[in-house]
Design a protein around this nucleic acid. Sequence first.
DNA 1: ATCATAGTCGTCTTCCTGACGATAAACACG
DNA 2: CGTGTTTATCGTCAGGAAGACGACTATGAT
Lengths: 256, 256
Amino acid sequence: MPPYDPSAFPPFAVTVDLVVLTVRRHALCTLVVRRGEAPYQGRWALPGGFVQAAEDLGAAAARELVEETGLCAHDPASPPPVPTNGAHLEQLATYGAPDRDPRMRVVSVAHLALAPDLPAPRAGGDANSARWAPVEELLGEDEAAAAEDGGPAALAFDHARILADGVERARSKIEYSSLATAFCPPEFTVGELRRVYEAVWGVSLDPRNFHRKVTGTPGFLVPAGGTTTRQGGRPAQLFRAGGATLLNPPMLRPEV
Amino acid sequence: MPPYDPSAFPPFAVTVDLVVLTVRRHALCTLVVRRGEAPYQGRWALPGGFVQAAEDLGAAAARELVEETGLCAHDPASPPPVPTNGAHLEQLATYGAPDRDPRMRVVSVAHLALAPDLPAPRAGGDANSARWAPVEELLGEDEAAAAEDGGPAALAFDHARILADGVERARSKIEYSSLATAFCPPEFTVGELRRVYEAVWGVSLDPRNFHRKVTGTPGFLVPAGGTTTRQGGRPAQLFRAGGATLLNPPMLRPEV
DNA sequence: ATCATAGTCGTCTTCCTGACGATAAACACG
DNA sequence: CGTGTTTATCGTCAGGAAGACGACTATGAT
């Protein structure tokens, strides 16, 4: 079989970028790394890197995730061979505007990862430093903050758009799936899960109705057996994520 | 600014593939073209092509759509400059397994297009012929048909997976958005819209409850003023798609 | 002992949906 | 010209889910 005529198509570089989300101190945060070189030197950017020659896109994303956070991706398709603390990882979207990188034509396949609260990130590879940044701070979700912080806090390349798309994906997907449990440790309480919803959506939910909803949906939560008082107050029952991945009827996001 | 070191990353070819869906004779159909060259010579495949050097991904998809169908893509972000018959076009997912094309490393950014019923497709460019094929026939959605037709009807490359993902996206997205109107002509009746849902989901819906639902959702449908009897029976009121793009509460897909 | 905090169980009202009866307006046929 | 068929549209009713909110429980802090 003849190979493609190299003059028939332009060469591209293909990268993966990661939107790694977690909930820290009641706020939705994302992992950003400081760029050490031009362009956008010194600016914050999403972690990412080149896809290698014989590497699948999802594998490249999982590799970058390990390099940046030590998290082992929990691909729903192939169960993890290593019983480590796993994060949810899924493809988000692909960004390939011709001028998105001034050096050459780069197409980036963005992935979305959801992780429980982690210790301070370890800077990996080519990143000078890394941190968890509240997405509200990076995106300037209210107009005033956007006009004020928009300049200095703005992310490199088109990463603000990628981050916004990833946040929107997470916000909508926890409505109708059990994805919010990916933000929680393996065992968690109903209140901790509720605080995840409140942080991701930026709302406050009625604890009683939330409790009725999640405990009344078959297969969503399974009791883990113990209780905990790590949140203070009355001891709360510990749960584990159940087998159900789809939430029907969905959790309703409040209007305002 | 120095360009990238060409040895630092492997070169990729980037293509766009299209899942073009329409409803024909009560069945969900997709556009497929017959391959004229190896590999998979003579097999059906999704239409697609290389992304050009200075072309955005969405623009490449829109260009391929015009070449294959004559449809002008209706990008929600940028309103169409040409008032032609527009189709909905959105990015679907990206497929880049290292061995998905035996000739070289190809990453394909698949797009999903929804169009009203069209006349017979015109074969464009490098395609020997093109046709609208029922997705049930291509995917073999019941096990018996899959075992029987699986061999000869199977699509080239990983296009069966891409098509399945596109169909699933369409099926879920018409639940909570007004996307089903993209399958209809500019003016349509409630019954025609219901038949779209029935064809895409493969179910039958109660006409009375469906009518109550779509006419009771503010901003979903706006009366166009006339009536039609093109479906037979009592004349039905004509509607146009309203401004509301999100359907809340969503249309519920029946269990079975 | 008292208070603050968080969790859990109920109740009530409202809204939405599914099931289905009934009527209306066209056409096809004898 | 009536009758049957088809499709559209309006109404009614019961069941379920969700929002609002009261009440009680079990911890730790002071």
